[in-house]
Computed example of a mutant assay.
Amino acid sequence: MAMTTPPVRPRALTHQAVALAVSLLDQVGVSGRLPGSAVKVGTPMEVVGDTSTTYLYPFGTSGEEGAAPYLLVHNLPLTCGVVRVPEGETGAGAWRIELDKPVADYVASGGLREFTVTD
């Protein structure tokens, strides 16, 4: 039986995304890269395109209409990282989480769970 996540209002998700961005800026070092562990369980994320991608963005920051919302359910492994999105790319100026395998693998293993956003 699949677990479902109750719908969440966008305002609450936006506050979580802002808090994550501020936290990441406070932690980032000279390398401009952080370990995946900097993203805490319960953080709302979004996926641009299909789940074969290895990138996640904090909810509401990709700038792409139709991005699919996901909730981080398990800690990310050390092989994942967090980096600033290069200017001119999707989510420019925001953070992106670079996974070590496709989003679909994390969904299948229960590490990410899609959820519904209500108006």
Score class of each variant (00 low, 15 high):
R11E: 02
A92C: 10
L20D: 07
T43H: 10
V28Q: 09
D26N: 12
P102S: 05
E46T: 03
G36C: 02
E46I: 03
A38V: 01
Y70V: 11
V28C: 09
E89T: 06
Y106D: 03
V30G: 09
V41T: 10
V73W: 00
Y106N: 05
V39F: 07
E65D: 15
V83N: 12
L99F: 03
T79H: 01
T54F: 08
P58W: 09
S62H: 07
A68I: 04
P77V: 01
L78Y: 06
D50S: 09
W95R: 04
V30M: 12
H74K: 06
S23M: 13
E87P: 12
A104Q: 11
V39T: 02
E46F: 04
H74P: 04
L71F: 08
G60I: 14
S31W: 02
G66Q: 11
V39C: 04
V22R: 13
K40G: 09
L76H: 02
P58F: 10
I97A: 00
V39W: 00
E65T: 11
S23E: 15
V48I: 13
L20Y: 10
V30E: 14
G88R: 06
S52A: 12
S31V: 01
K40S: 14
T90D: 14
L56I: 09
E65R: 08
E87T: 15
P10G: 02
L78A: 15
A104G: 08
V85L: 12
V41D: 09
A12G: 07
V28L: 12
Y55G: 07
T43C: 13
L24S: 05
Q27T: 06
V103Q: 01
G42P: 01
V73Y: 03
G88P: 01
S37E: 01
G32S: 07
G88T: 06
G29Q: 07
L24N: 04
A67S: 15
P10I: 03
T51V: 15
A104L: 11
H74A: 00
V73G: 04
G111N: 03
P7C: 05
D105R: 02
P58C: 07
G49N: 06
Y70N: 00
V85D: 09
P77G: 00
P44Y: 00
S52M: 10
P44Q: 05
Q16H: 11
L34A: 06
A68Y: 10
R84T: 14
E89C: 12
G110N: 05
H15A: 14
D26A: 15
L76G: 03
D100Y: 00
P58A: 08
